[in-house]
Design a protein around this nucleic acid. Structure first.
Lengths: 342, 342
DNA sequence: TTGTATGCGTTATCAC
DNA sequence: GTGATAACGCATACAA
């Protein structure tokens, strides 16, 4: 790689490095138009690109953001979050360091240190699913935002899905279709906040519709995959007064409901309506019948988080958001909901 | 963030910055053990972290790798590739800049420029699926490797799945199960190399087994989703002498086969065996019946690419690989293959 | 309007 | 063994 420095382009057009710097940093209103043109031409001619290390050393800004995440990079379903964050950052000439920590505290610590050593201008703490994050004073004064994560720290704006409202909307879909026995297939207890919020939304909606407390079933077998959900669903559905509709905690759980329905000879949506959550890529749309679900606004959250951070950093004008922002989860209506039989 | 510099720790223990630098950079065999200890203690006490910008400026190395990719970040299914690359890089104190370009040439150009300005030590060109990449002399002498992509440039080691061998293995699975009428559901023509390699593997295996040229069907309707695959499959399977097995180009196409089978009242695997490709997360394992498929070695390829680049950079000892490395795609045996009826 | 000079925090080359 | 000191490439206060 040919290394061409400010000095080289200055020499090439017979001005000082200061002038070149001024021209190239848009402070060119102070410079004669013809000088500007000459410098620009020379820079282009030589293929000059500024050395970011030198610039950072001088300006104390690296135009770099550190993203510390648990399994976002591993899991894939949240890739839109990555893309949304990236898009906004790049549009403002910022680059992102993503670091996955598998959620192990020592790794988080190491990641933050490594990022701090790189003098990142800000941090984004991104979680794979909506939960509370406690990163203490790890970031020591470096602007920070939470993505799919909430924080105790009042100084950390956070962006999370509006699980409560979305759960309400999901259950309302079933109520509006005429269902009166609507069960909720929940998630085993963990550190996720989504579980409780979706449960609350379910209960609130049932109560509002005068449908009693409902019926909540929690898969018990280890890892929350479709298999555990299937077993729980079979138990739930294998009775004469079974529910006519199920609101599943997420699309993977909904797969379990589908499998259970098949085992029991129940047809979806004729015998059983199902609503999922997440709009999991290549899953919800590909099930048979295609699953009606609530979409997680991953891309939007990523964009909002990046925008918030850049605002805090003064890169984007305007008031920086504070507190927790709940982002709407739009419904994706497909074919798994129908009126109950009879 | 409290800024503590080399100078501060030097002052704290009454030595020069040069000494501190020497100690902290493991060149400490030249320094008195007690001085070493004192410096280390002071550094820890003050919480010193080196300023990477300054170091980079001096050493001309940023310990940073630029990853230019089409849609890896958007699509999610290749997230293991991200993780594998990341793991290796981080283990050697290198960080990654990922930049998605949606495969638009001007964006690729911009991305490379932006990365070059950051003085990345090397480039990884990562593709979402196995294809040829032509990035010309964009990287101008910066070490580069290809990931899921091959390059004309002899100087660019590349890591791709061994699609040919995997396709052979997949079809052999069906041959071994006793099938003699095995069709291949291919992909519409595009810039992917996987298409031709999997097709070749299919044909070679059939020929080797004395099963003739086989039957290849190519979905024709626009974007290659499960819907197009379903339509093509219905046509393929709706005849008395239909194939008893289908080797699908990938798992998404296999979904289409499943849908077609359902429409035609064909049972998998009793009436029809299916083998997919990719082991797409939460898809292949969740289909009913679970799909037998060839796993794409995303994680391994990511690790290999990062290792190769770091070797080229002298960070990892050993001979740097050259040319194209084909990585094995392990079979994932599930429940979609059975002997043909009768 | 443009040039000179200084310093950002490190590493590395010398002296001592 | 350890300490001055000179770069690294750029931005900017100040001088001209």
């Amino acid at each position: 790689m040919v290394r061409v420095r400010l000095k080289d382009v200055a020499a090439a057009c017979g001005v000082s490095t200061a002038t070149v710097s001024l021209v190239l940093n848009e402070a060119s209103d102070r410079i004669t138009p013809e000088t500007v043109a000459r410098v620009r031409a020379a820079a282009a001619e030589l293929g000059y690109t500024p050395n970011t290390a030198a610039r950072s050393l001088r300006t104390r800004r690296t135009q770099t953001i550190g993203v510390v995440t648990d399994t976002v990079l591993t899991a894939g379903s949240a890739s839109a979050m990555v893309q949304g964050t990236q898009d906004v950052a790049w549009r403002h000439d910022h680059l992102l360091f993503w670091l996955g920590t598998q959620n192990e505290p020592p790794l988080v610590d190491r990641a933050v240190r490594a990022l701090a050593a790189r003098q990142v201008d800000g941090f984004i703490f991104a979680a794979m699913y909506h939960r509370a994050l406690d990163f203490g004073d790890l970031t020591r004064g470096v602007p920070t935002v939470g993505l799919d994560a909430v924080s105790d720290d009042a100084d950390v704006p956070c962006f999370v899905p509006d699980d409560f409202a979305a759960a309400r909307a999901a259950v309302q879909l079933l109520v509006d279709a005429g269902h009166r026995r609507i069960a909720h297939l929940s998630e085993p207890t963990g550190d996720g906040l989504a579980r409780q919020l979706r449960l609350d939304g379910y209960r609130t909606t049932l109560a509002g519709a005068g449908l009693g407390p409902g019926q909540v079933v929690v898969p018990q077998w280890g890892h929350f995959g479709s298999k555990a959900a299937e077993l729980a669903s079979v138990e739930l559905l294998d009775s004469p007064d079974r529910p006519t509709a199920v609101f599943a905690f997420n699309d993977i759980a909904a797969i379990g409901v589908y499998h259970a329905a098949r085992r029991l000879g129940l047809s979806i949506p004729d015998d059983l309506s199902v609503v999922g959550f997440d709009d999991y890529e290549n899953v919800a749309s590909e099930l048979y019948p295609a699953l009606t679900t609530m979409a997680l606004p991953h891309r939007t959250m990523g964009q909002l988080a990046a925008t918030a951070l850049l605002t805090r950093l003064g890169v984007i004008d305007g008031p920086a958001p504070t507190g927790v922002t709940r982002v709407e989860c739009p419904p994706v209506i497909r074919e798994s909901v129908a009126p109950p039989r009879g």
